[in-house]
């Protein structure tokens, strides 16, 4: 059963009379214990999508439509009380900037303890402390940091604190928004390994938002490619990243450096830039930059279609027909 199902989710930002279509009709299933990587360049709507799912967008300036079913229950229809209940106990998030994820004037332990107390109001100080310290151990943090302030910790430690914080109430869905991007590769690898171990140990399903293909390749079973707020392609990571069928994914993969290459060809990049989200093209959003685009691409929107190997892609020329 899918732990999270997005059905036709769209997000529109309204600002000074303009409508910015940040997310357009995204449907996506996240299966239990199948970590999903959502990739896309900056501005593709990755963060907006998860902020919408978490219902953390400002309701005054944003419209969210569609359904987001968490274990069959629509998050968008939940009462505020129900929403508070499932927050952190069912789904938790780790933010990109770990330093900003903690209050600078409160100790790390106090902040995390307070989050724990939201859902366990009857817990005593000693209980909270021992739970927080246990969670620190899970991510290889020393107990002593309970009494420290965020600015006294290193970047790697802070990211571990953020992860510990997200795990404090045993969520079944863990969302990580560029959670390892700011770290050096060694620390990044350590943390990714720890997360994978914890996932197996605790049965957590993870959604990883990133622009780093190597993070997805090394830590996610499935991948979904986002471009200008629309889903381009999704499927098992080893297939999508090795033999992409959507021209955008192909471009994305080609533009990523690898150590194995023995040629000295310069990296390719995708010419052009993201379309104006306030004024999206009528057809495929990628058409203006697509090397394979033809008339049909500019006139009508390609639907997400199934392809062999449990894959999906939204392109008229995906799969067989593009191998000219």
């Amino acid at each position: 059963m899918a732990i999270l199902s997005l059905r036709d989710v769209s997000v529109t930002y309204r600002s000074s009379g303009k409508e910015v279509h940040a997310i357009n009709n995204i449907s996506l299933d996240v299966e239990e214990n199948e970590s999903l990587g959502i990739v896309g360049e900056s501005g593709s709507g990755k963060t907006t999508l998860i902020m919408a799912v978490l219902r953390l967008l400002n309701t005054k300036t944003t419209d969210v439509t569609g359904e987001a079913l968490l274990k069959g229950e629509d998050i968008f229809q939940m009462t505020p009380e129900r929403l508070s209940e499932i927050r952190w106990t069912e789904m938790a998030i780790v933010f990109q900037k770990a330093l900003n994820a903690l209050s600078p004037v409160h100790t790390v332990g106090r902040f995390i303890g307070d989050i724990y107390r939201v859902h366990k109001p009857e817990a005593t100080k000693e209980e909270i402390r021992s739970v927080v310290e246990e969670t620190f151990e899970l991510v290889n943090l020393p107990k002593r940091i309970f009494k420290l302030y965020p600015h006294e910790l290193s970047g790697g430690m802070l990211q571990r604190v953020s992860i510990a914080m997200s795990l404090i109430l045993d969520p079944s869905l863990l969302i990580m928004d560029e959670a390892t991007t700011a770290l050096d590769v060694v620390t990044q690898n350590q943390i990714l390994e720890e997360i994978k171990r914890l996932e197996e140990q605790k049965g957590i399903t993870r959604i990883m938002i990133t622009h780093d293909m190597s993070v997805v390749a090394s830590s996610c079973k499935k991948v979904a490619v986002l471009y200008a707020g629309s889903l381009m392609e999704s499927g098992p990571t080893e297939k999508v990243l090795v033999e992409p069928i959507h021209p955008y994914t192909q471009g994305l993969v080609e533009s990523f450096p690898t150590f194995k290459t023995d040629t000295h060809e310069p990296l390719k990049s995708i010419p052009g830039s993201l379309p104006d989200l306030a004024n999206l093209p009528a057809g495929c959003v990628f058409a203006p930059r697509c090397p394979k685009a033809s008339d049909i691409c500019f006139n009508s929107k390609p639907e997400m279609k199934d392809y062999p190997g449990n894959r999906k892609a939204a392109c008229f020329f995906a799969g067989g027909s593009n191998n000219e």
Binding site: I86, H106, V118
Partner: peptide
């Protein structure tokens, strides 16, 4: 700030977030 979003995302009530974290900062 992100940490306020974190608290919100963790289900803390808005008045408590303001009382304990926003005002203090």
């Amino acid at each position: 700030e992100d940490f306020i979003t974190t608290l919100r995302g963790a289900g803390m009530r808005e008045d408590r977030i303001y009382r304990k974290y926003v005002f203090r900062n």
